[in-house]
Design a protein around this nucleic acid. Sequence first.
DNA 1: ATCGCCTTTGCAAGCGTGTGCAAATGCTGC
DNA 2: GCAGCATTTGCACACGCTTGCAAAGGCGAT
Lengths: 333, 333
Amino acid sequence: MTAKFYVSANEVAERAGVSRSAVSRTFTPGASVSPETRRRVMEAADALGYHVNHLARGLMRNESGIVCLIVSEVATPYRSALLSMLTQKLQNAGKVAMLVNTDRSDGSVDRALKQAIRYRADASIIMSGLPDKSITQLCLKNGQRLVLINRDDDQVGALRINLDDYEAGSKIVTAFLRAGCRRLAFANSEAGTPSLMARERGFIDAAKRLGLDVVVERFGWTGYEAGQVLARRLLTREERPDGVFCATDLLACGFMDTARREFSVVIPEQLCVAGFDNIEQAAWKSYELTTFAQPVEDIATEAVRWLDAGPSHDTNRVQLHADFVWRSSIRAG
Amino acid sequence: MTAKFYVSANEVAERAGVSRSAVSRTFTPGASVSPETRRRVMEAADALGYHVNHLARGLMRNESGIVCLIVSEVATPYRSALLSMLTQKLQNAGKVAMLVNTDRSDGSVDRALKQAIRYRADASIIMSGLPDKSITQLCLKNGQRLVLINRDDDQVGALRINLDDYEAGSKIVTAFLRAGCRRLAFANSEAGTPSLMARERGFIDAAKRLGLDVVVERFGWTGYEAGQVLARRLLTREERPDGVFCATDLLACGFMDTARREFSVVIPEQLCVAGFDNIEQAAWKSYELTTFAQPVEDIATEAVRWLDAGPSHDTNRVQLHADFVWRSSIRAG
DNA sequence: ATCGCCTTTGCAAGCGTGTGCAAATGCTGC
DNA sequence: GCAGCATTTGCACACGCTTGCAAAGGCGAT
């Protein structure tokens, strides 16, 4: 109906009686412009409703301000928490987040990265899956920065942020022992993600060091329903475990609910449970789950800091610590 | 270290021995290009790792392909579910989602919309808060489309997607009555969002029609902790309610946990509870919450359909239905 | 008055793309 | 061979912005 055109710097310049460069410089921090002209430009800009076109700016500056977040299963508690934190920190750093949802299909992450390339994203942050090496090479070659969160890959030039998953496994073993547990089990999904497998190995190794065997069960994807199935499998064994480490809080929630409902197990008296992630639900009164906290804020801070720092190839690996969160799903020693 | 420049259509053209226009047309669906040149262009493009620069394309076409999602508290189950669905549908429609996280501060949504303007987003989808009218006017005037989800505002030219919140309120009253409940209560947050208030009014009105009074309690923001507080307030009344409608599933979860733990109330025998949203946790065995399902998929479908349709000013209001989901937090009649 | 210096300003080139227009090409039917 | 037509191609301009460069202006010291 009315005009369908955004007002351009030209019109602002005309109205303010200055050159178009002056307008541009007014909106470029650190550019040389006198207070007087800046004032007049601002006035005209406000009156006309002018806003810098970041598409055009990105074209010139070779820097779009866009950061691409690549993630699957956004609706999952841990993922959405991390996503939320990342977008906030990015915004505070003057960047803007472009969200690309991937699935489990082959090439899904690759397609996402190509989208990032098309929009000339300054960086991509990969929270799920693993891209093909040829694509990441393309990104890096073109100056796009790459952050891999909890993806254990040996991409050179990318920032890798990882947790001490392996250590968590051993820490929880001592907690179980102190609680008097002797028949340990590990409940994992079949996803085979490096971080999940590291937790598993850490747990098994630490138990072995103390002379204990661990029953390992794996099923499905990393969600509530898989936790239910895992509970049925583990709790119907002749030697019923009395200390179960679930690779994920979601698994633990499903596990606990099924243990109580279908097997009338009392937690923590008859069975101790631990998880990983410290999702919001872990603190809910129905679970009171002992777990390890994903340092969501630290992850986001590190990622954004590295992006801000420009192409400094010094550190490209950050190891963060997952804090132990003690709750009542494990008996006090 | 290596070249920091993306390859442009120029270089592809040169390598393929054609004009730059040919390259452009090859990547423009429906453009006139012979199969032979298309083949040669594609070959050269693949070899060089060429990807159309969407910033430049957006500049020319006056259509960026970007849709801005404006939302607060992304990590919340319902929000993240809707977000996930929206990004997926947008991707399928060839758009890309730009995520802007808002908070409760004044002008937060306005700042988000300005970000959308700067990136010349084709549309903005607002899931939280309410922008200032002057900003939305600016958006609409510039041809940016606007979708308001569950925000009851009278913005002209924007698509408003709403639920039958009011009707849900009355439907749940009959369910409570059939279960034998006589002392009804409504647990709300203090947010005062139109959709929350509509549920409240619908519940109260329907109860009144059947000759029943409703105790209303409001506290805090719409989360688990608020549900806990509301439980303490409602369950310490001398006339303890036996049927509580929580404005939100999150509230209901907190309510149920506290009712059981701190008041030893047995659900549903001594107390029936219902919620709204049908978040994932509502189906968890610890809650088995009767609730109304946010038609997340329908919402996303409608939004994207409307965006695809171009500027058709015929329908700008969609009323969707929240399906009743029966679970065991209410006694069978 | 002249010079040197610093700040501010305008010009114009360029970023990578889409597209109208006219020229070129190929094909068909006489 | 030629007119008539449809298809394909290239040229050149436009999109809105940044920025190097040189010119202009202000100002104090000589």
